[in-house]
Design a protein around this nucleic acid. Structure first.
Ligand SMILES: [Mn+2]
Ligand SMILES: [Mn+2]
Ligand SMILES: [Zn+2]
Ligand SMILES: [Zn+2]
Lengths: 132, 132
DNA sequence: AGTGTAGTTTATAATGGTTCTAAACAACTG
DNA sequence: CAGTTGTTTAGAACCATTATAAACTACACT
C-alpha cells in the first residue's frame, strides 16, 4: 500500500519482493547505511519468504538509479549504500567498518574554488576516517 | 642507489623488483593516481624484465603501510592509489574514472565540529564527483 | 667467501563480491 | 483473458584481490 505508488511512479512494478525490500529499507525511524551482505541478513530476519541475492542486487541498483539510495565512497571490498539521500557527509570507523552520518552543519559549507572545463559538480562528499 | 636507503630505512629489503617499482612510482616530475592494473601496464612499459602481479600487490601494500602511497576512497571495483601522500582532495571524473588533485587551497579548511568518543580523526578526504 | 635465517618473489589457486544468463514467473495493457 | 514486457531466480561467470607454498635472495655472522 505504502510503497506501491512510489514504485509505480518510478516506472518500477510493485512486486512482492520490491515491496518487502522497501519495508526493510524505508519503513524505519532513522536512515541507515548498509552493504548488500548486511541487507541480505536484515531481509532474512524481517521476512519469512526468501528473496534471491540477484533480486537484492537488482533492486538496490534500481533504487539507486531512481535516487532512493546512494552509494558512499569508502575503501572496502564491499559497496556501501545509504538510505539517507540528502547531501551529507560521513565518519568511517576503520575498526568496524561502520559509517556515521555527519550533518552538513557538522562540517560547514564546502566551496570548491577550482573548476574543470566542460564538467559540472555532481556531488561533494567528505569522508572522515576514525581510528582509536 | 636512489631508493636503496629509503627502502632499508623502512625495513624493506631493496630488491630488484622494489627498486624498479620505485622508479615507476616515485622517479617522476609529478605525482599521480593509479590502479594496480594501470601500474602493471606502466611497469611493463618501463621495464624489460617482468614483475609478477603478486609482487606488485605486495609492494604496493608494503609501500602503503610505510606511508609512501595512499589509497583514495572512490566507488569503483578497483582500488585507487596516490603517490601524493600529502593531505589533499580529489575530483573524480565519472566519465573516465580519473582522479584530479585538489589542493587544500582549492577547498579551504574543513573543520569537523562533531566528535566521537574514544575515536580520533585519521584523515579527512573530500571527493568531488564530476559529470558532463 | 660460506652458512643460516628471515624476508621476498613467483606461479598458481582460492576467495568473494558482483554481474550475467536464460528460463520461469508475474504485473500490466487492451 | 491473451499478449507483452518487466521481474525473479539459481546458478554460472567474472575479475580484483588475497592466500599458498615452493624457489629464491638479501643480509648477518662467522
Ligand atoms: Mn551500482
Ligand atoms: Mn591495502
Ligand atoms: Zn549517511
Ligand atoms: Zn591525489
Amino acid at each position: 500500500m505504502k510503497y506501491i505508488d512510489k514504485l509505480r511512479n518510478s516506472g518500477l512494478r510493485p512486486t512482492k519482493q520490491r515491496l518487502q525490500i522497501c519495508e526493510v529499507l524505508f519503513n524505519t525511524e532513522k536512515t541507515f547505511h548498509f552493504t548488500i551482505n548486511e541487507l541480505e541478513r536484515k531481509i532474512k530476519d524481517k521476512i519469512d519468504s526468501k528473496i534471491s541475492l540477484a533480486t537484492i542486487y537488482n533492486t538496490v541498483h534500481a533504487f539507486e538509479k531512481k535516487g532512493y539510495l546512494k552509494q558512499i565512497p569508502v575503501n572496502s571490498n564491499q559497496t556501501y549504500f545509504d538510505t539517507n539521500t540528502t547531501d551529507h557527509h560521513h565518519f568511517y570507523n576503520l575498526k568496524d567498518g561502520k559509517l556515521i552520518d555527519l550533518e552538513n552543519s557538522d562540517v560547514g559549507p564546502i566551496n570548491i574554488k577550482r573548476k574543470i572545463d566542460g564538467k559540472k559538480i555532481k556531488s561533494i562528499e567528505v569522508l572522515v576516517k576514525l581510528e582509536d
